[in-house]
C-alpha cells in the first residue's frame, strides 16, 4: 500500500540522482584548473560593475585571470594568490570580504539576526503553547 505511494517519488529521485551521476562523471579536471576557476569567482573585475573576473570579458579581467594561472603555475597557494591581488588593489578586490574588525558586523550579523529571530520565535511558540493549554483546560 505504502509502496504505491512512494514508488513514483522513488523513481523520480533515482532519475535525478542518476542524471547527476552521468553529468558529473563526464570528465575530471585537473586540480589546477579547479583551483583557478574557484579563484576566478573570488576576485573582482576592477573595471566591471561588481562582477567577478570569472564573469567578464574585459581586458583587465583577462589579465587578472592570466595572472592567476601564472601564480598557480609558480606554486603559490590560494591565500598567497589572493594576497598578491590585495596588496595591489586593496581589500575591495576580494568578492568575499576578509574578516577584520570592520567586517565583524558583516560576518557575524547573519548569526545575530538568526539568534534574535530564534529568540522571538521561541517566545511566540511558548505563548501559543500556553494559550492552547489554557483553552483546553
Amino acid at each position: 500500500m505504502m509502496t504505491n505511494q512512494t514508488r513514483p517519488i522513488l523513481a523520480l529521485l533515482c532519475l535525478a540522482v542518476l542524471t547527476s551521476l552521468m553529468t558529473s562523471f563526464a570528465s575530471a579536471q585537473t586540480v589546477n584548473e579547479i583551483r583557478a576557476k574557484a579563484l576566478y569567482t573570488e576576485l573582482r573585475c576592477v573595471v566591471c560593475a561588481g562582477q567577478a573576473i570569472a564573469e567578464s570579458n574585459a581586458e583587465l579581467a583577462q589579465d587578472m585571470r592570466a595572472q592567476v594561472t601564472v601564480l598557480i603555475a609558480a606554486n603559490k597557494s590560494d591565500a598567497e594568490i589572493r594576497d598578491w591581488f590585495v596588496t595591489r588593489y586593496g581589500d575591495a578586490v576580494l568578492m568575499n570580504p576578509p574578516l577584520k574588525p570592520l567586517t565583524l558586523a558583516l560576518w557575524f550579523g547573519p548569526l545575530l539576526i538568526f539568534v534574535l529571530g530564534a529568540g522571538i520565535t521561541g517566545l511566540v511558540m511558548m505563548r501559543a503553547q500556553s494559550r492552547l493549554v489554557e483553552k483546553e483546560r
Partner: peptide, 10 residues
C-alpha cells in the same frame, strides 16, 4: 572611507 566588495561567495 573603507570600500569593500560583498559578492557571491559571501
Amino acid at each position: 572611507g573603507q570600500p569593500l566588495t560583498v559578492g557571491k561567495p559571501y
